[in-house]
Simulated assay, not measured.
Amino acid sequence: MALPTITIPDRLGAARTNLTDKLRRKPIADLRGMPRDIVEHRASFTLYRYSAVRGIEPRGRPVLLVPPLAAPALAFDLRRGCSLVEYFVHQGRPVYLADYGPVNFAHRGLGIEHWVDTVVPAAVDIVAAHSGADAVHLAGWSLGGIFTMFTAAAHPELPLASATAVASPFDLRRVPLLAVARPIDRVAGPLVGPAYRAMGGVPAPLTRLGFQISSLDKYLTKPLAMVVHADDRDFLAQLEGVDRFMASMYAYPGRTFGQLYHVVMRTNEFATGTMELAGRPVELAKIDVPVLVVAGTGDTLAPEAAVHHLLDLVTGSPDGRLVRAPGGHLGVLTGRAARRTTWPAMEVFFRQYDDSTSTADAR
């Protein structure tokens, strides 16, 4: 069957419609979140379960999504038609999310160990109990992937079927942006500690600025891109989704920022595979479940080399895999290409470890 031909008048008509909607401030993107219910609300996080889709038989073990800090959890559910959550629920997979909510001055004393030893383990146990599943797929993006891996390493007693890290850098010497920042750190470093301790953390505007700097080329060329793609409604809808995401950035808690600053600028501790948390070493080599690593081919914040270094560290995992997918730091998780790359690759991996026999064999 012949495909319809898109003519110049068609494109001009589409561009005119999109421009009219923009001028009228009529949303192009469908920014409704996928339906969900609160499973449990605690002081440090809220656990959500996304509603199953009517007519689709539930199947597979549940996946628990682990967000980073500062970036809002809506990254997993950016917009209708381009939502990782939407994709998984349409596969019939039970989907849960641990949402930490915004950070404020009261959270200034929380460090990485808070998420690794308290928040993520508690969320895993609740998901297992609520779903009735014998094991849970744990999947995190960016710093959430780092939380995921250190949790799996620190708590072998957790009922995990697998652990996935998307765009999570473990060898920070491979991040060009940080190489540029280190000479600045030698001059301004002594001022950083007193500054973030006085503020209780890093304010949301600064975390937003950092994210924008990591994709500065896209940020600067955005007006031109909107003109070039004026007839592409899905492209413009994606920009709206990303704009909302950027406007929803949170602050970083002070102690966690201090730990990360030390790792990033001074020690590159993640690259060793061992991190000191709550007075004891946590070794990634102790992870004994299948591991999936997803790297974005256009990610400047977490380049491929920095991300796939994780596979050199999880030597105790029975199955370590790398998926390379197009997109930057956010795009590899929820860009338009992720529909065909990242999400199906994750689902294929989860399916392989959806029953106890597969997991036992892998171990």
Rank of each mutant, 00 (worst) to 15 (best):
A2V: 09
T5W: 15
G13Y: 10
N18A: 04
D30T: 02
G33H: 09
I38N: 07
E40Y: 12
L47E: 02
I56F: 01
R61H: 07
L65A: 00
V66F: 04
P67K: 13
D77S: 04
E86H: 04
Y87L: 02
V89L: 07
N104R: 13
W115E: 01
V124Q: 03
V127K: 02
A128L: 05
G132M: 03
A133N: 04
A135P: 03
V136Q: 00
V136W: 03
G140K: 04
S142N: 03
T148G: 00
L158Y: 08
P159W: 02
A163D: 05
V175I: 09
P176Y: 12
P183V: 01
V202C: 11
L206N: 05
F211A: 11
T221R: 15
R233V: 00
A237L: 09
D243C: 04
G254Q: 06
R266I: 06
N268C: 03
T272A: 03
T274W: 11
L277R: 03
L277N: 07
G279I: 10
A285V: 11
V289C: 01
D312E: 15
D312Y: 09
V314H: 08
A325E: 14
A325R: 00
V348D: 15
Y353G: 13
S356I: 10
T357H: 12
S358W: 03
D361A: 13
R363P: 10
